Computed example of a mutant assay.
Amino acid sequence: MTDRNVRNLSWLEAKGSSSRLLNLHRIALEYGATAEWNEQPMFNDRMLNRALIIKHRLRRDEIQDFRHRRFVATKIVLPIDPRALGVGGRFMFVGQNNFYQALSSNFGLSREDEDTRRLELLDRLPAFDPFLMREYLRTNGANVGSCYFNISKGDLAGITEFVKSEVESLVKLSISSGADMKSSNPVARMTSIILSTELGSELALLGRTFRLEPEQYREGVFCWKGFLYYKWMIARTMSGVGEVTEGVRAIRPRGRVDTSAAVELDRSRERICEQIVQACDDAGRMIAAYDRAYEGLVVGGRPEQFRDFLLAAPRLFARLGERLGAIEHIVSFWSYRFGHGNATPDAAELLDIFSDFETSLGVPDNRRTSSSEPAVAA
């Protein structure tokens, strides 16, 4: 299939990866000359390793392309001309009808190839959050370079000031404990070390504070970066949650609505609002656990408590990533679909939107046919 939506593809090309987009094209441009990108690629097939991979909300006419009913799919976009993405691209969905035949004809891949398995792993993820993705791939035996899991440049600019405020108390502790943080701006320096994509010798500064063994530096600091990222993401996303819940309760479809559709819409409204609150509470509790461990370090002087929390943190990433990925998707999609004076949907479209939100939040969809395939959230 060919996608000639030139404006959207060109816009995606300029973006870094996000929870909805794994921009392998942009990663290849930035890291293609590095040994890491060449020796630990996401995909061995070089064309596939430069694709745009998107968590895509299926349109009504696309749902029929799958054997089992679903509302979000993993879309692989292959640029027609990698030097000019405005030309458009060919695309396919992971798990679509004749998926393995399409893999064979486009990439020469079989069901048993490692690239096929990684596509199916990515399809099972609720989002392309870098920490969730990294942990899920690693636990499933996929050895992928760290360049695929870096925070995007846009997010990095936003998170920097947040991290500075978070680490100020730790900088004071580091200085008092004898760590070499006596630079002209020690807070900025500590922030730079934490957010750096290169885990070099300066990690010894953090290692001494946290009492991490050298082999634990990389894992511990990666996990710390993950929780700082999630905490910032919560602060950024939660501002739109109230608007969404109010909008879900208030919106009414245009045109005639039959009784059964009206009843289902009302039931769905309540389920969505309840589950959004539950998802926010879940995420808040996990971040609160991080805050307690961090407070134990900077106030209670218990670095072992924070160290142990960081080393156990990967177990929390999947759940936290799922919760935040769902909330972020709903908030961003609501703004996209219902902002800027866009037309009110009819009953059928609104039911589809609500079903997508429920799927994202993990609510069982009674309208969906039974399937052994894992539910995919957005």
Score class of each variant (00 low, 15 high):
1 M>D: 08
4 R>Y: 13
6 V>Y: 09
11 W>P: 00
18 S>C: 07
21 L>E: 06
22 L>C: 06
26 R>F: 09
28 A>F: 10
34 T>P: 04
38 N>A: 15
42 M>V: 07
44 N>C: 09
46 R>E: 13
52 L>G: 00
53 I>P: 02
58 L>Y: 04
61 D>M: 10
66 F>N: 01
75 K>S: 03
75 K>F: 10
81 D>F: 02
82 P>K: 04
83 R>K: 14
89 G>D: 02
95 G>P: 03
96 Q>D: 05
97 N>V: 11
99 F>N: 05
102 A>W: 06
105 S>E: 13
109 L>T: 05
111 R>T: 13
115 D>P: 06
115 D>S: 07
117 R>P: 03
119 L>I: 04
120 E>Q: 15
122 L>S: 02
124 R>F: 05
130 P>Q: 06
138 R>C: 08
141 G>W: 09
144 V>Q: 02
149 F>G: 00
150 N>A: 11
154 G>N: 13
168 E>F: 05
177 S>M: 09
198 E>D: 14
206 L>N: 01
208 R>M: 09
209 T>V: 14
213 E>G: 02
216 Q>A: 10
220 G>R: 00
220 G>T: 00
222 F>D: 08
222 F>P: 00
223 C>D: 00
227 F>Q: 00
230 Y>H: 12
237 T>P: 04
237 T>G: 06
242 G>T: 13
243 E>V: 13
249 R>I: 08
251 I>Q: 02
253 P>C: 07
255 G>V: 06
259 T>S: 12
266 D>C: 02
271 R>Y: 09
272 I>K: 01
279 A>K: 14
281 D>F: 09
287 I>Y: 05
289 A>R: 14
300 G>S: 07
301 G>E: 07
305 Q>D: 13
306 F>D: 00
307 R>G: 00
321 G>H: 03
322 E>A: 13
333 F>G: 08
338 F>G: 01
340 H>M: 11
341 G>N: 08
343 A>M: 12
344 T>W: 05
351 L>K: 14
355 S>K: 12
356 D>Y: 14
359 T>P: 00
363 V>T: 08
366 N>H: 12
366 N>T: 13
367 R>A: 11
367 R>G: 11
371 S>H: 02
